[in-house]
Design a protein around this nucleic acid. Structure first.
Lengths: 250, 250
DNA sequence: GCTTGACCCTGACGCGACGTCAGGCCCGAC
DNA sequence: GTCGGGCCTGACGTCGCGTCAGGGTCAAGC
């Protein structure tokens, strides 16, 4: 195969293959009389490895040493790639969860601290700054800001949305008071209503996402506090109902 | 907050913040008399957005236009980020699955085509090259190569491993012949043995991974063919048993 | 009040991984 | 034989910073 074909197959540009050739990362095993690069199956194999490691963020030079290490068999590469990909999967889900949390916080008018927001990034040097920064501007105008931001919605819209969610919360509280089990059909129906309300007014909320939110309601104190202010025990109640409802939809 | 603190909090270098300042992507809202950069909570907020979009692969200039677009409220950013992150999650799982498939193919001595290997990369221009390249060197020495590669294992080791898996396959076939249901305890025990064999000899194979392999045995014709050669109906049988076993372990 | 060490500033150059011409050769189809 | 598409080799440009160099700032301790 010549460069153009390989490039098309692998989804890279010809220039990239030229580059890999020049830096010695992937030298085609042959050339035609006219000097055309000729790639063998083994070359493609190597290219595949290169692209995987590149995708995983390795600098090309390191990729070269990895692949040229004679003491590393292909199975070892696969195991390493597998491990790294799973790490990445985990990190990405953490980021997804963080974004979902932020969305829900906005919807409920709760504002997160900067520390939390950055949590999913750096390579976490914890405490240290946490306390210090908390001091520095823990109780500023964050709420007002958050409120103001939601002003993609008009004030009327916002009031309507607020009324809607107040309504569901009140009915949740009533169910809790009258002893309706949190995993009963009635409670699950309320949860479903809650989910659809979020989807309509804020962001598309799948049952799985909703279950995640449910867990958060009891794990994050601010969300807990939000519901506990409506009625004691409500956070746990809503959490259970929401998760039961998600299980029902699975 | 001054640069050092922000950098530590966000997990970036001071130089990065300098850079973002100069290109106008994130200009701190204030300076001290001595010229020290002073970052406000709103600045941190913006930095957070910047880092998210950057992580998602946007060039900084585009990030700036996104964030400066006055017609885009924060909720829209969250929705977009959420969407992009889920795409990424999907792509990463696809890559994980591809690596697992490759590992299993190696373990079973099956070799994949280059097209398949690259499938998870490019932005897929399908057919077109597929047929052509298949022609070009569909039936080369790939098998021999693959065998040779596994020579991180000595020949003796390989024979032992092969004997082990032949044994389990034979017992699967026997169970199938004597009418033992594929989701019976007996079949699941065989599946579990299969899983542990893989883990011992090739790579750490969780029940979920094993279930994925099980699906592949009936979805990919080459894996199907492998088992069908041992006994007709065995691919489906093993697949069912493996998935049942995985469900039992969940 | 003065030193000291940690932190901050602004250039300015360097680098990795290519993108993007420019100028020219090659090759199969008509 | 010529024409369009593909290939070649420089060589310069770009993006997102890393890495000094040379110099001011700030709080702590003496």
């Amino acid at each position: 195969m010549n460069v153009g074909e390989v490039a098309a197959l692998a989804g890279v540009t010809v220039r990239t293959l030229h580059h890999y050739d020049r830096i010695g990362l992937l030298q085609p095993s042959g050339r035609t009389a006219a000097g055309y690069r000729q790639y063998s199956p083994a070359d493609l194999d190597r290219l595949h490895q290169v692209l995987l490691y590149r995708e995983l963020g390795f600098p090309l030079e390191e990729v070269a040493t990895l692949l040229d290490d004679p003491s590393a068999d292909p199975a070892e590469h696969l195991r390493r790639q597998h491990r790294l990909l799973r790490d990445r999967l985990e990190r990405t889900s953490a980021m997804v969860a963080a974004v979902e949390k932020e969305m829900e916080a906005r919807a409920m008018g709760i504002s997160l601290t900067p520390e939390e927001r950055f949590e999913v990034f750096g390579d976490w040097l914890p405490e240290e700054y946490a306390a210090e920064a908390e001091e520095k501007w823990g109780g500023t105008d964050a709420w007002a800001q958050s409120q103001q931001r939601t002003r993609a919605m008009s004030k009327d819209d916002w009031l309507r949305v607020k009324a809607e969610s107040d309504d569901v919360e009140a009915r949740f509280a009533a169910a809790l008071r009258s002893g309706v089990p949190a995993d009963s059909e009635q409670a699950m129906d309320l949860a479903e209503e809650h989910r659809q309300q979020i989807s309509r007014n804020f962001y598309d909320c799948s049952p799985e996402m909703h279950a995640g939110l449910g867990r958060m309601y009891v794990e994050d104190e601010r969300f807990t506090a939000y519901y506990e202010r409506v009625a004691p025990g409500l956070a746990q109640y809503v959490s259970t109902a929401v998760q039961a409802n998600a299980a029902r939809h699975a």
